[in-house]
């Protein structure tokens, strides 16, 4: 039996007693663990993201996702929509939940005789992820913070990026970036020579 990690201890404590200090500590512990042992998340990236990104591109997408997780703020005021006076705030950190899911991927891999999830070949990793996403009834790419599984969160995060859109359209659209107004009338240039 594995000893109870600091993260697992804090996550369990935060779930039982959701005091702000425990929740913050659990979030920090999850971020620390992601930073110190990123192999499972990296392997997950290579499992679910397009192969055309290559190892470097996939690692970069995972690193961006890690930064997203690290900078998440609980109880932050969210954009309020039109037509209602209701306000809303961001929910609890998803980091602790996602770390537990990464642990579960490793545990599943170990049960099949592998050292860890990242040690499995791609097809077996993908089979595990499919089973996990089926178990959480994932049916769409949801907003990152509301993703019911870390694999889905990683996918949602990358597919929301300008890079993903440009690759899809094979065009330098560069959405939501500062671009010359005058060039907007022209068809976007193809990515040829831009891709890694």
């Amino acid at each position: 039996m594995h000893p109870l990690s600091r993260r697992t201890f804090l996550t369990t404590l935060a779930a039982a007693l959701p005091a702000a200090a425990f929740v913050r500590s659990a979030h920090a512990a999850a971020i620390d663990d992601l930073a110190s042992s990123p192999d499972t998340l990296r392997a997950l990236g290579e499992t679910v993201l397009p192969a055309e990104l290559g190892r470097a591109g996939s690692a970069a997408a995972v690193a961006d996702f890690q930064r997203w997780v690290a900078n998440y703020r609980e109880n932050a005021e969210l954009l309020h929509g039109y037509g209602t006076s209701t306000l809303s705030r961001s929910g609890p950190t998803p980091a602790t939940r996602w770390m537990i899911q990464l642990d579960a991927l490793d545990a599943t891999a170990r049960r099949s005789g592998a050292r860890s999830f990242d040690a499995l070949p791609l097809d077996r990793r993908r089979a595990i992820v499919r089973a996990e996403l089926d178990s959480v009834k994932a049916d769409r790419l949801s907003p990152v913070g509301r993703a019911p599984h870390v694999a889905l969160a990683l996918l949602s995060h990358w597919y929301a990026s300008a890079d993903a859109t440009d690759r899809c359209y094979d065009a330098r659209i560069l959405k939501e970036s500062c671009r010359p107004l005058a060039s907007s009338g022209r068809k976007p240039l193809p990515l040829a020579g831009v891709r890694a």
């Binding site: 679910v48 055309e52 996403l133």
Partner: peptide, 17 residues
């Protein structure tokens, strides 16, 4: 981009793109 194809199958890796 979407997670499920027309037949409801889960898309991963290159399949989504």
């Amino acid at each position: 981009p979407r997670l499920r194809g027309d037949d409801g199958s889960l898309l991963l890796g290159d399949e989504i793109m």
